[in-house]
Amino acid sequence: MLATSLRTLRRGAFIATALAAGSFAGAALAAKVAVITPYLAQPGTQFYVEAFQAVAKDKGWEVNVIDTQGDVAGVISRIEDMVNQKVDAIVINVDPAQVTAGLQAAKDANIPVFGMDAGSDPLLVTNVTSNGYAMAAETSTYVADRIGGKGNVVMFVFDAFPPVQARGVVASAVFGNFPDIKILDKVTPDVSDGGIADSRAKMEAILAANPTAGSISAVWAGWDQPALGALQAIEAAGRQNEGIVITGIDANPQARAEIAKGGNFEASVAQDFKGIGSATADAVARVLGGETLKQHVIYVPTKLVTAANAAQ
């Protein structure tokens, strides 16, 4: 019975070969590209992969998408298998520091590996991701504009996590360029419960310390959770009509919902997941075309989300 099913399988494989041979006639040298991720089930990753495949289809590549379902060691194993198959390029969406063994195998075989929002690594040709610096610049300049370049700003930062630390540096520089903007406080919330509850508690203390209307002009947060916590604190204190401007970063669904209401939480920044996927495919195409990429990180533009476009 097993033998029969295997025979059927083999017959299917023959048919597949015949079909593949037919399509090869059209594109004599279809590039083989493997996309390997442990996180295919996550919505962001699906956007990357779909956009990548759309570009790959135009280019006529054979794309093999491999999901190891959370198994990071499995990513190393599958990179080894793809190296063995001598694919033309490999794309990963996982922390490169955890799959060094696989990256080394690819390098030894001269197969280029690309990061799709993976993190920087010397063994990657390039990593395509959103520009955290630009995201922080978007929201901090939004704040400076809304408060007319004048007033007290509360910042929520998190220096222990490098991507968020970079955002804080940029926002501080932007506010520092306005002589009449004063950083009232730089708060690092406890994130062990998600960050909203402790941010709310910290904001309540700041509100109590600055009771007069207009003493706080804005709250700039390095990501959405502290912005949501600050909003709750302001609403609970009944100070939502003082015109305090709140901004976050990431534009998660909860943040979008608040921004769409048109309240104090006015803006956040959304990453362009599809853009990251197609930009990765473009980078692969350039390298397959013989180009040497100068950039080890390729940044994909992000989008400011306000009440005008929060529902999109």
Partner: peptide
Amino acid sequence: SRVASANPTQGSG
């Protein structure tokens, strides 16, 4: 050792 890291769910599979 293979992934040069540790994660609280990595052995579950």
